[in-house]
Amino acid sequence: MTVYVLRTLAKMALTLFVIVSLVFFATRLSGSPLETALGEGLTEEDRTMMIEYFGLNGSIWEQYARYLRGVVEGNFGLSFLERRPVADIVAERIGPSLQLLASSLALTLIVSLPLGVLAALYRKSWVGSAIMTLAFVGYAVPNFIIAIFMILLFAFTWNLLPVVGNGSPAHFIMPTIAMSGVLIAALTRFTRNAMLDVLGQDFMRTARAKGLPESVVVLKHGLRNASVTILSVLGLQIAGLAAAGNVVVEAIFSWPGIGELLVASAIQRDYPVLQFGVITVAVAVVTINAATDIAYAYADPRIRLSRG
């Protein structure tokens, strides 16, 4: 078991090293901060001075060595624009992003599991068709359309919900729905299909033959067995969202989250912020993957056994 944990940790360290290096070189390939709007109206001499001030002097390998030294010491540098530690900046933003992610996840589970099960049970009636049509539409409509449409109705026209920031529970309603839209649609479809696979199995007939109530048959014997598929889909989707898939929603609702921060720092070539932000997201994705693995084990005892 110890060996297994150590091996996992070593793998994680290697993954993170590769990510740190890739991010370092990829950001620098995209151009220097002095080639964006920051460099307007600077003379050559001024540019040299600013390059030194930002610590961008020396060859890219010297900069890389400096950067790695900093990372080992836990010093990820200062933002070019704000001149404060990037860890402080990202720390401010990660909380609101995680809150939004958590509320979207909760909404997705609450809505799509029952819908998926219903769609499977009533697959031949209008209920199933209606649910699947909704899911199809939800899958096809991008989140910013949903967001703008909701703003138009609930804020602009009826003035029922706030649109700016994350100040109160009411602020969560529209961004959460916008974020979950596609996720709900996807998960409803996957839940339905997973349930259909399970519903036709022999053990379901056995359960019914035992005289178990229909709710126990469907939820305990059916949904429990379908959950492995559902979990793996969910894990992938969350990882996608955590990896700055929420940029647009954050921008529309002025949500002080990390996706918006990453895009802004990429545009301004604020390397230190971008590097640390991407690393943070990478750590989050790795953690979510690990959590998904553990959740599998709970859902399916065979996975636990096979790992020894």
Binding site: V164, A251, S254
Partner: peptide
Amino acid sequence: VIRIPETASRITALKTGEA
């Protein structure tokens, strides 16, 4: 002074009284 990057959201915020 708060940042509202999206134009549609700025105008809506004015309308809802958030700004």
